[in-house]
Amino acid sequence: MQPTTQPEQPASPPRLEARDVTMRFGGVVALEHASLAARAGEVTCLLGDNGAGKSTLIKVLAGVHPPTDGVCLLDGEAVRFRSPREALSRGIATVYQDLAMVPLMSVWRNFFLGSEPTSGRGPFHRIDVGRCREETRAELAAMGIELRDPDQPVGSLSGGERQAVAIARALHFGARVLILDEPTAALGVRQSERVLEHVRTAADRGVAVVFVTHTPHHAHPVGDRFVVLRRGRVVADEPREALPVEQLEALMAGEAG
């Protein structure tokens, strides 16, 4: 980190920040002056009811929608991504709830999809399948999942395990920011707990995690900071200490703030 920073930013800038973002689709205002900062090693929870603007905000962060107004900053530097691929190449990985995996493809093929390691030259240029299998197994073992056969289709994994594969994949490819879109939404209690552990693991490895959920009870145990959206506006942006779970629930329900 640079020792001489601007006076209004005494600490290092957030890894990824949306500052004063407004997003309009035609006449519909999806976000109004919304801000969110994701810091390295922290889990920033983004909460809100359906239609509050959570998806829009993460799509702005992930480079899907360029904001109508406002700016995104990566390491304190203004960025304007033209595509999710560009955001990905800058280390911003997004895991969407249902669209993270190809169910009929094997675990290792999914794991390395789009970034296949190759060996050989010319006509023998090929995927290094042995390495893929081994690294998939190792990375999942590091997350506490014993995978005996990396060739089994992802469709045979549970929902929680699929999220784990997606998170492990993002970490493996050096994600600096990990945006998780409702990773616990369709899961039972036990599987949710395991996914929450993975969320924490990612942050403990120094990644800036943005965890989107509409369940305060999922957010509170793992979150360092909570941003609550309501009808496109940020109604709360508080550290964990300042926001007990009851108050978070109340905010979600629209009774306070």
Binding site: P84, S89, Y96, L99, V102, R109, L113, G114
Partner: peptide, 13 residues
């Protein structure tokens, strides 16, 4: 991937 789940494929580039 393009046949199985094109959206997921696009998401990983």
């Amino acid at each position: 991937a393009a046949g199985g789940q094109p959206e997921a494929a696009r998401n990983v580039g």
